[in-house]
Design a protein around this nucleic acid. Structure first.
Lengths: 134, 134
DNA sequence: TTATAAAAGTTGTATATACAACTTTTTGCG
DNA sequence: CGCAAAAAGTTGTATATACAACTTTTATAA
């Protein structure tokens, strides 16, 4: 691969599509997408976290986050009328089940990719986030 | 980062969002998204390519590709009534301008990330595509 | 304490994406 | 050739995402 043909953004987008498909498959039994499962797990780990904080951490635009959260609320996973995000009992139980699924899958993926590839992602990640993040 | 907190798919999705934003910015002057610019450049490089081929190469689902192509057609960038995808004159000129923008940006990004990070992406990419692509 | 600036969140609009189900086109074979 | 199977492409429906403009909430300074 040379500079001419190797597009950083294009490659990252493709890998994200592939990984998303793989992780989505793991959650079909729970009827959640990986994106939703991820948010559930974040809120489970940090109850009361604000949309703005998740937005910054995950680099998701605030309006996109707003809609993700609205959907989770509609699904009965979030409580109402509170400053910050809190899971309902149902949301909490689902988050725990998702975490179990995620942990097993993610460990398997780490193992299959191998330490070099995983380390490659770490290197890229650090470089990209420190140097290119406005 | 340890296995517990380091989600491969989550990280890839975040990096893809960041990179997409960066590349999108470069194309606002041409009023195209990076995704559209990428397709334009692929079709410019391979006139007559089929949706199915792009779909496989880029790992984009065929229905998503169908809609991307419809949009490009509506924008006047694709000819009609032909087997395979062909750019109109307008599409072709736009593709050339996009390629110039892309080349400069992508070189700058390669330089800013540094060879280690770029190589990290290559390693990850090869591992992920060979081992996890169904 | 209150006016206002800043931050957070929402809504309108549009693209990007996927899955399932369906239609159309292509291809192989008898 | 002409049919049947496979491949390609489309459409319905839903989520994920972004930008711009707007509203609401929060924080700060006089």
């Amino acid at each position: 691969m040379n500079t001419e043909t190797y597009c950083i953004a294009g490659r990252l987008r493709m890998l994200a599509r592939v990984a998303t498909g793989l992780y989505n498959d793991a959650f079909t039994g729970e009827n959640v997408t990986f994106a939703q499962a991820g948010l559930l797990m974040h809120i489970f780990a940090q109850p009361g976290i604000r949309q703005s904080a998740l937005s910054k951490t995950l680099q998701i635009e605030k309006s996109a986050m707003s809609r993700d959260v609205q959907l989770m609320y509609k699904n009965g996973w979030l409580t109402d009328n509170r400053r910050g995000l809190f899971l309902t009992e149902e949301g909490s139980l689902l988050a725990k089940r998702c975490h179990k699924i995620w942990k097993e899958l993610n460990q398997r993926v780490h193992a299959e990719l191998g330490p070099e590839a995983v380390n490659g992602l770490t290197l890229l990640s650090e470089s990209l986030l420190t140097k290119l993040l406005s």
